[in-house]
Design a protein around this nucleic acid. Structure first.
Lengths: 116, 116
DNA sequence: TGCATAGCTGCGCACCTGCGCAGGTATTCA
DNA sequence: TGAATACCTGCGCAGGTGCGCAGCTATGCA
């Protein structure tokens, strides 16, 4: 395997073959960025609280989320907008109430994972 | 269940009981922050690349990691310092080479999770 | 001993992020 | 129609983050 890109092929390696293994292990850069972005969505305690609440108790209204988390409404709204733009949550409008839920399967997996 | 803290007990709720369920679902604030910090360590593409390389190919030297990821040495070193301070990786010195590996079980679980 | 190499550190800059505040829109109800 | 409610948005600030650069320490080898 010769996976080292041309622009760094001249650098000295410690374990040459393991470098190639490492490059293969890292894989596609796009997939990498996608996962990093996913993790960054869970990397804030407030957003994580919102997601856990939605994941474990089902659809919830914005102001109820605000009370449950101790945030105030605009902060909740902005966090949900971010999560919605990323395709992690979706909101359904019923009258003047919007109930959100988690729709991304990967994120749900991560939320399960941090349960124990 | 009356889990709503006193400082927000006067606010109007949409679904009162679900707010209590949500508070229970969120759980302990410390555990929440711990997980958020864990996620934030994986929330950078470079750090994630380092961790995936270490996780999947075993112990690797700093300069090999730099070549594999395309970062330069100080950046790798700083990222590893951060991860080491968080107890995620550990380094073993052999002569003038330091080989790092992933030692945190939770993070390893997350790295497995983002394999597919 | 002298030199090259592996790795670490401090500093500074550009960039991003979360959130509070003030104000706007849409829906409900008297 | 007017008031109250649920939610959303734009703006600005404070704080954090990643990384390049220059320079340092420690190890190995001729």
């Amino acid at each position: 395997m010769h996976l080292v890109p041309a622009d760094r092929a001249d650098r000295r390696t410690i374990d040459g073959h393991r470098v190639c293994e490492a490059i293969a292990a890292i894989g596609d850069a796009d997939r990498l960025r996608t996962w990093a972005e996913r993790f960054s969505l869970l990397a804030d305690a407030n957003r994580l609280a919102l997601l856990l609440a939605l994941h474990r108790t089902g659809p919830l209204a914005v102001s109820d989320l605000a009370i449950a988390t101790g945030m105030n409404d605009p902060a909740v709204s902005q966090a949900l907008r971010l999560l919605r733009a990323a395709g992690v949550v979706a909101g359904e409008k019923e009258g003047r109430v919007v109930r959100y839920r988690v729709v991304d399967a990967d994120v749900r997996g991560l939320l399960e994972h941090c349960g124990d």
